[in-house]
Amino acid sequence: MRSDALVSLSLLPTAEGGFRSSIPVGVFHGVMMFDDKQGYDFRSDIEEPIEPGSTRSLKVAFLSPDEVLPLLCAGASFNVWAGRVVGQGRIIESLRLRQEHRSAASEALTRAVDDN
């Protein structure tokens, strides 16, 4: 699975409105809300169950990465929505921007070598 961002995700405890059970191993489908108006569907490969009330670093891929890319600034906060807020998190790094910068640097190097 392609990864667009590395995030720190904290699930709410069950008593505070979080999930009743852990997120199981497999592909997790969620909605990231950077404000109260717009949600962005994401997917993440879960390698170990994530318990309510715990925090985990995850790589996520967005269904519409070009739409969310401007919001993927390190430190940006978000809520995770599943019919209600079930967690919150912060963007650690935009992997998509890093990949784009790497591609641009590679292209510049190739042009410089070709010019010589």
Results as ranks from 00 to 15, higher is better:
Gly89Val: 03
Leu63Pro: 00
Leu72His: 02
Ala108Ile: 05
Trp81Ile: 09
Pro24Ser: 08
Lys37Gln: 11
Ala82Met: 12
Met33Asp: 03
Leu12Ile: 11
Cys73Thr: 13
Val27Thr: 14
Ser10Thr: 15
Ala76Pro: 07
Asp115Ala: 15
Val60Ala: 01
Tyr40Trp: 14
Phe42Ile: 00
Glu47Tyr: 10
Lys59Gly: 07
Arg96Gly: 00
Asp35Ser: 14
Pro65Asn: 09
Val86Gly: 02
Pro52Thr: 09
Arg43Ser: 11
Ser103Phe: 08
Ser21Tyr: 12
Ile50Ala: 01
Glu107Lys: 09
Ser10His: 15
Val80Lys: 03
Ser103Tyr: 10
Pro24Asn: 08
Ser77Leu: 05
Gly83Lys: 12
Pro13Arg: 15
Val25Glu: 13
Glu16Asp: 14
Gly89Thr: 03
Ser64Asn: 14
Gly39Pro: 03
Thr55Ala: 12
Phe78Tyr: 15
Asn79Ala: 15
Tyr40Val: 01
Val27Ser: 05
Gly17Ser: 10
Val31His: 03
Val25Gln: 11
Leu11Val: 04
Gly53Met: 08
Asp45Lys: 06
Tyr40Gly: 00
Ser44Tyr: 01
Ala108Glu: 11
Ile46Asp: 06
Asp4Val: 03
Lys59Phe: 06
Gly87Ile: 06
Ala82Asn: 12
Ala15His: 12
Val86Met: 06
Met33Tyr: 05
Glu67Pro: 01
Ser106Val: 05
Asp35Thr: 08
Arg56Gln: 11
Leu11Arg: 01
Ser22Cys: 12
Arg102Tyr: 11
Pro13Asp: 14
Arg20Cys: 06
Thr110Phe: 07
Gly87Leu: 08
Thr110Arg: 12
Lys37Glu: 08
Leu9Ser: 02
Gly30Met: 03
Cys73His: 12
Glu100Tyr: 07
Arg111Asp: 10
Glu48Gly: 01
Asp115Pro: 01
Phe19Trp: 08
Met1Trp: 05
Phe19Ala: 04
Arg98Met: 10
Phe62Ile: 00
Arg111Trp: 04
Phe78Gln: 03
Asp115Asn: 10
Ser64Leu: 09
Leu71Lys: 14
Arg56Trp: 06
Pro52Val: 09
Ser44Arg: 00
